[in-house]
């Protein structure tokens, strides 16, 4: 409560207090500026190798045939939808507990990417389900809980942008993100707790993966590539958001100066 500066103070021209506030984001800009090109190049490289392996050099499945290749997109998207949400929850907790301004920005920039990734997970799953299961969609516990995860991503993205004061939106979004965490174990264990049309986990399970290594290795490469791309996207968006915030502060300061100059 007391740590939130009044609105007038937050928008004040660069006083020592707000300079201190930007000190940390400045360091973030410098460090992320060095990392981002390498991260993007690594994502592009790993993704190109993974997709080529998945499409051209991995075997078909004995009963799914070539349609199994959808799995190399679907499964990484599912992992990212859940792992990304965990990152959102951690950033939200950091924002609520430590009031770290970067955590708010990170959460704000994370949710649109998470929503796209979850939508891709749902869409590719549907494209696989139609020929394999015989239906685009069923309301079983796994599919329904992933749809709820998608709504949580969308809800967070909309909520943090719904307020005039970014601090209030960020706090509301952080609370929503933390409430939504209950859905993560439901998504993960839905296939074990209830009978579902969706199959149980093949890779992340106790014992040997129920997937032949000639499919498992390209899947892991694709998952790494998509994860790197996800990280690069979120980092680039967060950098842009930090710069945009600084631009707003500078423009406000300039407007004040001009106002004072006019009055004098």
């Amino acid at each position: 409560m007391d740590a939130t500066p009044p609105i007038t103070a937050a928008a004040a021209p660069p006083a020592p207090r707000s300079l201190h506030r930007f000190a940390n984001p400045g360091r973030f800009l410098r460090a992320s500026g060095r990392v981002l090109p390498w991260l993007s190049a690594a994502a592009a490289g790993v993704l190109a190798a993974g997709v080529a392996w998945a499409l051209a050099f991995s075997p078909p499945d004995w009963q799914q045939g070539e349609t199994v290749r959808i799995m190399y997109v679907h499964v990484p998207m599912a992992w990212l939808a859940m792992g990304g949400y965990l990152a959102l929850a951690l950033a939200s907790a950091a924002a609520l507990v430590w009031r770290h301004p970067l955590a708010d920005l990170l959460a704000r920039e994370l949710s649109p990417v998470g929503a796209v990734v979850t939508a891709l997970c749902l869409a590719t799953g549907s494209l696989w389900g139609r020929p394999m299961w015989g239906t685009w969609w069923v309301w079983d516990a796994r599919l329904t809980s992933v749809l709820v995860l998608f709504f949580l991503w969308l809800g967070h993205a909309a909520l943090v942008r719904a307020f005039d004061e970014p601090e209030r939106g960020a706090r509301a979004g952080a609370i929503l993100a933390l409430i939504g965490v209950v859905n993560l174990p439901i998504v993960k264990f839905s296939v074990d707790w209830w009978n579902t049309l969706h199959q149980p986990a093949s890779v992340t399970r106790l014992g040997a993966p129920a997937m032949h290594v000639e499919m498992l290795y390209p899947l892991l490469v694709c998952a790494l590539g998509f994860a790197l791309a996800f990280a690069a996207l979120v980092l680039a968006r967060t950098r842009a958001a930090v710069m945009e915030r600084r631009i707003r502060a500078l423009e406000l300061a300039r407007a004040r100066r001009e106002e004072r100059g006019m009055a004098a």
């Binding site: 499945d61 004995w62 199994v68 799995m71 299961w133 149980p200 499919m215």
Partner: peptide, 18 residues
Amino acid sequence: SEVLARHDETYMPPEVAD
């Protein structure tokens, strides 16, 4: 009125299955 096939969690190349 509708038959849906479940997939189990196994993924293997046809040669391995054979």
